[in-house]
Design a protein around this nucleic acid. Structure first.
Length: 154
DNA sequence: GCCAACGTTGGC
DNA sequence: GCCAACGTTGGC
């Protein structure tokens, strides 16, 4: 697995789940992902991998801080619950379709790095975030990750 | 609230 | 297996 990327970006709507919530509860399961590509990325995650914590559908949108993977991918039980908004009848306990990881709080950026700011960085122009805007869990290159940390820690 | 991008579904 | 229709995401 030496080519597995060690850095990721995960999107969340802060009205539903924000970095402050993660900070308060320290760890959280990342349930509700219903996209195959995003799921595959979660299954490739390794313990300790660092995650850019992205706030979407808010004002402003952008990167709020950093989390780390603290539990490897396991079946997303919300898919089994017919009353859950993320219920998916094609996912069964015997053959789960959807998976989640747990993440732990690492850091809230002193400076929130807005999407506009990210877009203005020539070094970040190849980010998956721009090429596949709708993907909610995506890999980040080490150089990109470090550059963004530099922006977030003025 | 609009709408572009794009992933998924389903008819053929 | 193709591709049109449809639904959802997410920036603006």
């Amino acid at each position: 697995m030496k080519n597995t990327p060690a850095y990721w970006l995960m999107k969340t709507e802060p009205d539903v789940f924000s970095i402050d919530t993660l900070k308060a509860q320290k760890t959280a399961p990342w349930d509700g992902v219903r996209n195959y590509s995003a799921r595959n990325h979660m299954r490739a995650m390794q313990l300790g991998n660092l995650v850019l914590f992205y706030h979407s559908s808010t004002e402003p949108v952008g990167i709020a801080g950093i989390a780390k993977v603290c539990k490897l991918a396991y079946p997303d039980h919300t898919a089994f619950d017919s009353k859950n908004i993320h219920y998916d009848p094609k996912s069964t306990k015997k053959a789960p379709t959807w998976f989640m990881v747990d993440v732990a709080f690492v850091e809230k950026f002193k400076h929130f790095v807005s999407l506009a700011e990210l877009k203005a960085q020539a070094k970040l122009k190849n980010m998956t975030l721009f090429r596949r805007g709708r993907l909610s869990v995506q890999p980040v290159a080490q150089e990109e990750f470090e550059w963004i940390c530099g922006l977030g820690r003025p």
